[in-house]
Design a protein around this nucleic acid. Structure first.
Lengths: 242, 242
DNA sequence: CGACACCTTGAAGAGGTTCAAGAAATGTGG
DNA sequence: CCACATTTCTTGAACCTCTTCAAGGTGTCG
């Protein structure tokens, strides 16, 4: 990662628009001030660069402020599996707690800014602030539940349903952040979508083409407009033949 | 769940053989005593019955003392996906923290005994005991990392490699508990293995037959003997054609 | 010992992959 | 701003793995 001389970015959870999505909900102003003292700094990551890599010593978790990240694990043989996409207000790095080393790579899909949260200090503070402690547990639990959903998707859905579920999930998260519920711009390649969904690039491409042909989604490269949300939902809900 | 009149089971983490696997490692004897006070009781679950079901209010997490459990999520359409198998010393129920309700079923695959750990009390105590707090975080992080591994498996491995990885993982966990590193008895049906691995029963059955024919595993119903561990490992490590 | 769940095997079929080639988008440097 | 290089995306055709359907065998528990 290139070092860019830049004054350390200011941190102010109390004025952060992502407060409700991040670690701060439920904290009073005094508690908020203490959290701000823990969230030491911000860090920028250029598109294509890594926030951390598998094997790096674990010290902090990161709250995404702006931009878009993927995390991916690598098998010994260079097989790569994207395990998640993360947007503003979401936390990455929790995988590193067990072994004191990160077990996956976190790579910026566009220029990213994160809050750096030294984990040892977060633990210290969450021993004092009950609501912060509980929120940390909630965030970790949410990640576990999210992954259950991915397992269901990978284990039992056909290609069209996987892509439909993926799009609906992205839309819902973007909508919660004030974006359109029917339009979005993909920040990742077809390749990366395929890796996440356990499918090949060609299959993703073909499935997008089919959605377009069926009038479900208007596809222009990475710009998508959802024309028939119900049809996407139906694909996800549909019971497979057996 | 049938109620069985039975004196409440005694709890004593300090004398528990699973201490090193459960929540207790790193606690001194005074701290251990306080943990014992939190681990209120034990509970038995008969084979086939549920420890909890999706939608049940979340109050406790459970440490498996003896026996074997599966957890599974259900799609709206009754599609079922097994999300994990749990054995002695492992913790189930972490999915319930976010929404204060369980999001999956935990079903006993053989008669099971668990320690009931009321989560609110665990949080209280872990605000006081730093090492307990950290261990709780480690356990949750481990679950996240485990699920990354399952995603890699579901997303990028062929049937033989999935089953090989599954067997090696079971063996390793059993070995850590003092069992043989080369023999095991499956506690789950082929159907459940298939669900976990994203494959159909027939495929599991055929793959076991192939392993047997290739002299890799001796299969007698649910009793397995690993003849060629290296061959299993090679299947997992092998790079797919592309 | 009989009923029921579980497991195995074969044959046919479908969905996704692989391979290949070309088109579109994106980035770079003059 | 344009020309070129590179990456990303699309599409077709052949192939392969896993699924589906069907039937019979095995094991287990009351």
């Amino acid at each position: 990662m290139r070092k860019i001389p830049r004054p350390p970015l200011e941190v102010a959870c109390s004025s952060c628009k992502l407060r409700e999505l991040c670690l701060a909900p439920g904290l009073d102003s005094h508690e908020m001030a203490r959290l701000e003292a823990v969230v030491a700094s911000r860090q920028r990551v250029r598109r294509g660069e890594a926030l951390y890599r598998s094997g790096d010593p674990f010290e902090s978790v990161f709250a995404v402020r702006t931009g878009f990240l993927k995390t991916c694990v690598k098998a010994p043989d260079a097989r790569e599996q994207v395990t998640g996409f993360y947007m503003a207000g979401e936390l990455v790095g929790l995988d590193g707690i067990v072994g004191e080393r990160h077990t996956c790579d976190a790579v910026a899909l566009e220029d990213v800014e994160v809050c750096v949260i030294p984990f040892a200090r977060l633990e210290d503070l969450s021993r004092e602030l009950k609501s912060l402690q509980h929120h940390v547990h909630r965030v970790m639990s949410r990640e576990i539940v999210r992954e259950h959903g991915v397992m269901l998707l990978l284990g039992s859905m056909r290609a069209e349903a996987r892509l439909a579920a993926f799009l609906l999930n992205l839309l819902q998260r973007l909508h919660a952040r004030g974006f359109s519920a029917s339009e979005l711009i993909l920040r990742m390649t077809r390749q990366e979508i395929g890796s996440y969904l356990g499918l090949k690039v060609e299959t993703i491409s073909r499935t997008f083409s089919k959605f377009a042909a069926d009038g479900i989604v208007a596809v222009q490269s990475r710009q998508l407009r959802i024309v028939d949300r119900g049809a996407l939902q139906a694909l996800v809900d549909q019971r497979p033949a057996s």
